[in-house]
């Protein structure tokens, strides 16, 4: 276990391991991003990335086939793209179409290309495509009435890779599912899932390719809802299930599926990270707690 204290001068909002699990990127209210090399119980600071003018909410590693690339989003309304070349990190691109804090970023499955989903407090989502020639193509759409807190991609469907989906969660307490419409060249709302009674803080679409889609939404209302739908079923078939029947002790800030999609980690405002698994009876069981 690696423990890094005092990494930043402010709150740390996100810490993400890279594709190989060897590097850790953290970001903070101190407006910086730090890259650490993590090995066993040791860690080493590789670099500190400065450029944002506000707290950096989230970081996301691009698939290594695009290079060593990190995206970051900030309260300053900007998304910055960082690249490591040689031993140097530099800011190689900026995406600033949002008029308010950009709260989350998420790289699309690499099969789709270098697509980055950004969600903002201005109620909009944007998908930026970083093209090989260095240009960017952007699609922006109004996703939630106000404040999109989180967004992420559905795993690519084997049968139909062109069918791209996104799930977002907003301050309107809704979880929305969007499908890319190539004709309109935008993302159209496919589903608006109501269930939370307060802001949706995070959404996570399970990478598992089982026969069901699984989406976890974590909320300010201290609940986590698991939304499921049989693959191939039509609209409106999403079922909701509370991860835990009673409320969590605190706000559920973050939901993260393990790489194979069988374990869900929920981080709560009480600093606890609980792990959850669905048993064969279709019930969710707590499978332990991290670091306790």
């Amino acid at each position: 276990m690696v423990t890094i204290s005092n990494a930043h001068d402010g709150l740390i909002h996100d810490a993400v391991l890279d594709y190989y699990g060897k590097r850790l990127a953290t970001c903070s209210s101190d407006k910086t991003i730090k890259i650490f090399q993590v090995e066993g119980d040791n860690y080493k600071l590789i670099d500190t990335l400065r450029g944002h003018e506000g707290p950096v909410w989230q970081v996301s590693w691009a698939h290594p086939k695009f290079g060593v690339i990190l995206a970051s989003c900030s309260y300053d309304g900007k998304v910055l793209i960082w690249k490591e070349e040689g031993d140097t990190w530099s800011n190689i691109a900026e995406h600033s179409v949002h008029q308010a804090s950009v709260n989350s970023i998420s790289w699309a499955p690499s099969e789709y290309g270098a697509l980055l989903l950004c969600t903002s407090s201005d109620g909009k989502c944007s998908v930026v495509e970083f093209q090989a020639d260095g240009s960017q193509k952007t699609i922006v759409w109004q996703a939630h009435a106000i404040g999109v807190n989180a967004g992420t991609w559905a795993p690519p469907q084997k049968e139909n890779i062109s069918e791209r989906r996104i799930v977002t969660g907003g301050c309107d307490n809704l979880v929305k599912i969007w499908r890319f419409d190539a004709v309109q060249n935008t993302y159209v709302e496919e589903e608006a899932l109501a269930g939370h009674t307060d802001w949706v803080r995070d959404v996570a679409w399970s990478p598992s390719l089982l026969s069901k889609y699984y989406i976890a939404s974590a909320s300010q209302d201290r609940t986590v809802i698991i939304w499921t739908k049989e693959v191939g079923e039509k609209k409106g078939a999403w079922k909701k299930q509370l991860l835990r029947h009673d409320k969590f002790p605190d706000v559920c800030w973050r939901a993260s599926w393990s790489m194979s999609g069988n374990v869900l980690a929920i981080s709560g405002g009480d600093n606890k990270v609980t792990l959850w698994k669905e048993n064969l009876g279709g019930e969710w069981e707590e499978a332990g707690e991290v670091d306790q």
Binding site: H13, D18, Y20, W57, W253, R254, S256, I266, G269, V273
Partner: peptide
């Protein structure tokens, strides 16, 4: 907006 906690799976 200031998330104080997080947990994300890695490889």
């Amino acid at each position: 907006l200031s998330r104080p906690v997080s947990a994300t799976f890695g490889f």
